[in-house]
Design a protein around this nucleic acid. Structure first.
Lengths: 149, 149
DNA sequence: AACCAAGTGGGAAATTGTGGGAAATCCATA
DNA sequence: TATGGATTTCCCACAATTTCCCACTTGGTT
């Protein structure tokens, strides 16, 4: 399971070290995609297989209108990149993704159960503040939704 | 069951001894997360599995499509850390968690049934005071209600 | 008093994160 | 097709941090 927060540098060649604790699980090749909320998602090959299968399956129960779905898939697939993990555990962030996430200098690398997210450090700090404040409300809400199921 | 209060030092390398009475139950690897009231929760691997399963609701593979779930997962996993218990029963508190809990020098290590909590000593003292006063008031209130009957 | 267990501290070794140079590849142009 | 330049890939090196191990101290027990 991928968990925890790490602040790593993005060097002049757009390389970011994966935290050593993640390396085993990440394997030697990963998929980087634009994520939701202005971060980047990094999936293991295995997770990506799951995700892409679910997204491309036209009979899936995802409540997308077909047009929306096409757009979303362009967003996810069209801008995804398969990148190699180098011999000492770094990945290379393609320019357009780096730009999209507003990443430069330092980046927050976050383990979120089965994927990794890469954030602009400041945005991550802000985001954390916000979710912390909302946490209690959110927990209650999820709990009540659970109850209703 | 984990019970009792211990004041332990957090040394220059961010290490804290688990009370020897807790060690057997904690195993060799635990999960540390930000808890409520600015303390840290320390779960056994087993407890964590329960907690995270209950909260993360993994039955939908694409939970990242829902904003609520994204937030919550980042909250749960992004700020947690899996840490090894060293050969003599200490754990290492990651900087970002230590900071969040305002821990330095000394920390209160509290057994709370099925998890351990780590507190800034002063905050713990205050919290205890408050609970105790509330308990007193509550007792008095109950007593006076009784008297009036 | 001697012993044991628990908590604390610190040194040495191993690992991790970072930077940068050299080799390989690609691309445009002559 | 050959050439020069730029970019990418691969590899090595350094510094800082982390990990591992051992030793000291304290307090309680026999």
């Amino acid at each position: 399971m991928l968990i925890g927060e790490y602040i790593h540098t993005v060097d002049g060649k757009n390389r970011v070290s994966l935290p050593s604790k993640f390396r085993k699980e990440m394997g030697k090749s990963v998929i980087v995609t634009p994520g939701l909320d202005k971060c980047l998602f990094v999936f293991t090959a295995k997770e990506w297989a799951k995700v892409s299968k679910r997204l491309s399956n036209t009979e899936s129960d995802l409540s997308f209108l077909q047009a929306d779905k096409r757009s979303f898939n362009r967003f996810m697939f069209g801008r995804a990149a398969e990148v190699e993990v180098d011999s000492i555990g770094r990945i290379l962030i393609p320019d357009f993704l780096k730009e999209r996430a507003g990443i430069a200098g330092k980046a927050a690398v976050i383990g979120v159960e089965d994927r990794v997210e890469i954030w602009n450090v400041d945005m991550w700090a802000e985001y954390k503040d916000r979710i912390e404040k909302e946490a209690d409300q959110l927990a209650e809400k999820l709990a009540s939704e659970n109850r209703q199921q």
